[in-house]
């Protein structure tokens, strides 16, 4: 029973990791950009959630209504103002610039919010639980997982069923020819980053509800997101969800064996999968 519990808790945790990963996967897919600052942007969203909840007194989940569009706007501005200039045949400049951005974000957050760990509070939601057969699950993890599934479904739908998604795929396939079709790639990239950071905003708030965070929390989130993307296979969003779940389950099972092993066992699962299937479990497929 305890193992079943670990499995279920790990699966639900995987939803959060999939949310960390989805934005990373999306921007890599559209513009081959590896965003080292992704984790710090998740933490930024959590802090924005904190500001909104403490300033206006909104419930953290409701605060998403403000934080999601705010992060989307930050994403668009960041892409048009900074990251577009780094994109080219060379993969190194965007890596260096987003690494620099990561440092700037961490120090900025430290300056504004101090190093004290913070948490978003939602008293009822945090403690509520549901009986699920022989085990009990928290409402928050279930909600997180449901949101993750909805977000991935929404992204998938956007990618394959809308004109915007068509533009994303076209620009990803061939930037020059996409330009000939009247698509301004700089704008399309801006929209992709806006969408990615909108997802990041959701991830950041759910993170802040689940655990405490501080300005240095971003690095760990980046790694988990990155691992989930690679496990699932690049360019496959449902695969990313599966990757998140595998990572989450590996962590809770590891923690079950020895609490100190939680993070380590996730990394081991990642390395094992990478060794057996370097292309990930579900490499790119469409529809």
């Amino acid at each position: 029973m305890e193992w079943l519990n670990a499995l279920v808790q790990g699966t639900l945790l995987g939803g959060l990791y999939a949310l960390f990963a989805a934005g990373l996967s999306l921007i890599f897919g559209v513009m081959r950009l590896v965003n080292i600052a992704h984790g710090d942007l998740i933490v930024l969203a959590a802090y924005l959630g904190l500001t909104v909840t403490s300033a206006i007194g909104l419930h953290p989940v409701v605060a998403m209504v403000l934080v999601v569009p705010a992060m989307a706007m930050i994403g668009y501005a960041l892409q048009r103002g900074l990251l577009n200039q780094t994109l080219g045949d060379d993969l190194l400049p965007p890596l260096l610039v987003t690494f620099g951005l990561s440092v700037i974000l961490q120090n900025g957050l430290l300056e504004v919010y101090s190093a004290d760990p913070q948490k978003l509070s939602a008293p009822v939601l945090e403690t509520a639980s549901l009986p699920l057969g022989p085990i009990t699950v928290g409402v928050l993890p279930v909600l997180t997982f449901a949101i993750a599934v909805a977000v991935i479904w929404g992204l998938q739908w956007t990618f394959y069923k809308t004109a915007l998604g068509r533009a994303f795929r076209a620009v990803s396939d061939n930037q020059d020819i996409a330009q000939l079709m009247g698509l301004n790639k700089r704008h399309i990239f801006g929209l992709a980053m806006a969408l990615a950071l909108a997802v990041t905003a959701v991830a950041g708030i759910l993170l802040g509800l689940r655990t405490s965070f501080d300005p240095a929390s971003g690095g760990g989130r980046l790694i988990f997101g990155f691992e989930a993307v690679i496990i699932g296979g690049l360019g496959n969003l449902w695969g990313t969800l599966a990757g998140g779940v595998i990572l989450g389950v590996a962590q809770t099972i590891g923690a079950k064996i020895d609490p100190g092993w939680q993070v380590l066992s996730g990394h081991i699962a990642f390395l094992v999968i990478l060794a057996i299937r370097p292309q990930g479990l579900f490499p790119r497929m469409s529809g």
Binding site: D176, L180, M181
Partner: peptide
Amino acid sequence: LRGDQVAE
């Protein structure tokens, strides 16, 4: 002009 502007 950029390619997309020319297309237009």
